[in-house]
Design a protein around this nucleic acid. Structure first.
Lengths: 335, 335
DNA sequence: CTGTTAGCGCGTTCAC
DNA sequence: GTGAACGCGCTAACAG
C-alpha cells in the first residue's frame, strides 16, 4: 500500500483483518457476514477512501453497463431545438432503474466520423440509440457491422426494414396540418420543410402534399428548411417572393415556425388573418409566440422511452418491432 | 469457443495460428510483427467478429476513460431551455480529441439522489462536471468525499472556495440589464429572478439590485421565477398586480422573458413603450419574440469548454483556478 | 459465517 | 519477431 496507488479490496481486507472475499461481500451487500466484520470493513473502507474498480468487477460479472446515444450534429445550432433535451430525458428516465449508463457520443458525421466509428467498434458499449441520422450516413453502415443492438429514433432512410426504429407519424402530422389550413379556407398554401435527407423532413412534406392534392390544391409552394430559426426565416422570405398571395403555411418545426411568424409580420402580413400558420413539435416555442402557434404534437420524450425499451429488449435478445407513435393537432391562435 | 461467448483475443490468436501476445500487438498497432502474421490476425479478427474487452484492457492500462456530466433535473421542463444543449455541446467538443467518453448522469436530486450518489462513489468515472447544483444539495457533499476531480458550471453556493468552477459574471449581467432600464428612463423597475437557491438566480438579482440602488430607485419589485415559461408568466402577473405602473422589467432568462412578454401584451401593455424588457441568455428564444428581446449574453458552450479544460487539468493533477467569464448586453427591440 | 482458490480478458516484461 | 508467464482487482465457487 504505497500511498500513491489507490486502495484495493485487498488493502481494505488487510486493514479490517478479514479476507478479501469477506470484504467483497460487505461491499456488495451480501447478508451472510457477521456484524462485527461488516463494521470493521466499513470502517476500513472509509479510512482508506476505497473505491471499487469497475473494470475489474465487470470483467468477471460480465453485465452490460452502458448505452450510447449517438447524436449527429451537422449544425451547431441544432441544440437550440429542445428536441435533444426531450430525447435525453426520455432515455435517461428509462435507463435510470436499470443502472445502465448513458454515454453521449456527439459529433459531426463528416468531421468526427472516424472517431465516432472507432468508438462504436471499440466495444465500449452494449447498445446504441441513434438520433437524427441523415441519408448516406456512413455510420449506419459501420453500425451494421458491429452487430451491436441498435434502435433509431426517427425512421432511418436506409435500412428501415433491417433496423428497429421509433418514430412519430410524420406523414399523418403533415396531413393534419394541411387539412387544418384547407378547412380554414386557405387556397394558396405553402410549406417550409425540414431537411430532405431525413425522414422527418420527407414525411411531413409528403403528408402535406397528399392532403393538398386530395383537396385539389397545388403543391408547388415548397421551400426546404433546416430546422433552424434562420433557415425558417429565409424560406419564408423566398415563399413570399414566389407567392405574395400566400394565405396558408405549414412549417415543419416550431422553431422555424416562430421565426417564420416574425418574418410574416415583418412583411406586413397578419397571422392568422392574412396567412394562417401551423407548426410542428408542440414545443415550448409554440407557446411563446403571440398568438400561440397552432401545431402538431411530436412526443419526443415518449419516443425516447419507447426506443430505450426496445433497445433493452434487443440487448436481452428478445424480439422488438419498430413503432410509429400517433400525433394530433394542437389548436393555437395561428390557424 | 462455444459460439455463445463472444470471441476473445485468445480465440483470435488460435485461429490465426499465433500466440495471444502477437495478436495483442496487431490489435494495438505494435510495428514489430511480421506482415504475414499481421494479416492472419486481421483476418481472424474479421471472421470472428472479435471486439476487445474494454474492462480487461483498462484493468491493465489504467487510463482515465470517462467524464460524468451530472445534471440535476428538479423540473421536467428544464430541458425546454437550450442551456443544456449548449452545455453538452461544449463538453463534447473539448472531450472529443481526448478520446474520453461523456457519460450523462441525470436525475432529480431528491428522487434519484441515491442512485446518482452510488454511481459517483462507484468509481465508474474519472472526473465530474456538475451542472446547476442547488443549495443544500446532498450530492455536493458526496462528491467531496469521493475526492474525484470535479468542476462546477455555475458557482456552487456551498464550497465555492473549495471547488473549482466556471461561471458567467451574473452579477455584472444583472447590473447591465438594470442600467439599460435606468438609462432608458424607467423608474418603476421590477425583476423576475431565477431560483434563489442557485448562484445564477441570486447573483443576477443582486446585480440588478445594486444598480437600482445606485440610481436611487426602489428595489422591492421582485418576484421569484424558476427558469420556466410558466413560472415567468406567473411572476409577471404577480408583479403587475403589485405595481400596475411597472415600466421596466429585468427577467433572469430569455425563456421566462418571452413568456413575460406575452403576458405583458395580454395585459394590455406595449413592449417597450409601456414596459421595457431585458432578458438573459441571448438564446434563440430572444430572437423569436417580436420585437426581439434585448438580452444579456450567457456563453454557455464556452463555459462548458472552459470547465472541461479545467477538469482535464485536475485529472492530470495540475493546478486549476475558477474562472468567471464576462458578459455583455445585446440590444434588441424591447429596451 | 469465512477463507482459499480459480479464473475473467488483456497488456507486458523477459526470455528465446 | 515471437511466445510463455505474470498480474491488474474483483467475484464466485467450494471448502471449511
Amino acid at each position: 500500500m504505497d500511498g500513491r496507488r489507490s486502495p484495493t479490496l485487498e488493502d481494505v481486507a488487510a486493514r479490517a483483518g478479514v479476507s478479501r472475499a469477506t470484504a467483497s461481500r460487505v461491499v456488495n451487500g451480501d447478508p451472510r457476514v457477521r456484524e462485527s466484520a461488516r463494521e470493521a470493513v466499513t470502517a476500513a473502507i472509509a479510512e482508506l477512501g476505497y473505491r471499487p474498480n469497475r473494470a475489474a468487477r465487470s470483467l468477471v460479472v460480465r453485465e452490460p453497463d452502458s448505452v450510447a446515444v449517438l447524436v449527429h450534429e451537422p449544425d451547431e445550432r441544432i441544440f437550440a431545438d429542445p428536441f435533444f433535451g426531450g430525447l435525453l430525458r426520455g432515455v435517461g428516465q428509462r435507463l435510470a432503474p436499470t443502472g445502465l449508463q448513458m454515454v453521449l457520443v456527439m459529433g459531426d458525421p463528416v468531421r468526427d466520423g472516424a472517431r465516432m466509428e472507432r468508438y462504436l467498434r471499440g466495444g465500449h458499449t452494449d447498445g446504441v440509440i441513434v438520433v437524427s441520422a441523415h441519408r448516406g450516413d456512413g455510420l449506419v453502415a459501420a453500425l451494421t457491422e458491429t452487430r451491436l443492438p441498435t434502435v433509431f429514433v426517427g425512421r432511418p432512410l436506409t435500412g428501415a426494414d433491417t433496423f428497429v426504429y421509433v418514430d412519430v407519424d410524420n406523414c399523418e402530422g403533415g396531413r393534419l396540418a394541411a387539412r387544418r389550413l384547407v378547412e380554414r379556407g386557405c387556397h394558396r398554401i405553402g410549406t417550409v420543410t425540414g431537411p430532405l435527407d431525413m425522414a422527418a423532413g420527407i414525411d411531413r412534406h409528403q403528408g402535406w402534399s397528399e392532403e393538398l392534392a386530395a383537396a385539389g390544391l397545388p403543391t408547388d409552394l415548397v421551400e426546404v428548411g433546416d430546422f433552424t430559426a434562420e433557415g425558417g426565416a429565409r424560406a419564408v422570405r423566398a415563399l413570399l417572393e414566389r407567392a405574395p398571395d400566400l394565405d396558408g403555411l405549414f412549417v415543419a418545426s416550431d422553431l422555424m415556425a416562430a421565426a417564420a411568424m416574425s418574418e410574416l409580420v415583418a412583411a406586413g402580413r397578419r397571422v392568422p388573418e392574412d396567412v394562417a400558420l401551423v407548426g410542428f413539435d408542440a414545443s415550448a416555442a409554440a407557446g411563446m409566440t403571440r398568438p400561440p402557434l397552432t401545431t402538431v404534437t411530436n412526443p419526443v420524450s415518449e419516443m425516447a422511452v419507447r426506443a430505450t425499451e426496445l433497445l433493452l429488449r434487443l440487448m436481452r435478445r428478445e424480439e422488438a418491432a419498430s413503432e410509429v407513435l400517433p400525433t394530433r393537432l394542437v389548436p393555437g391562435g395561428t390557424a
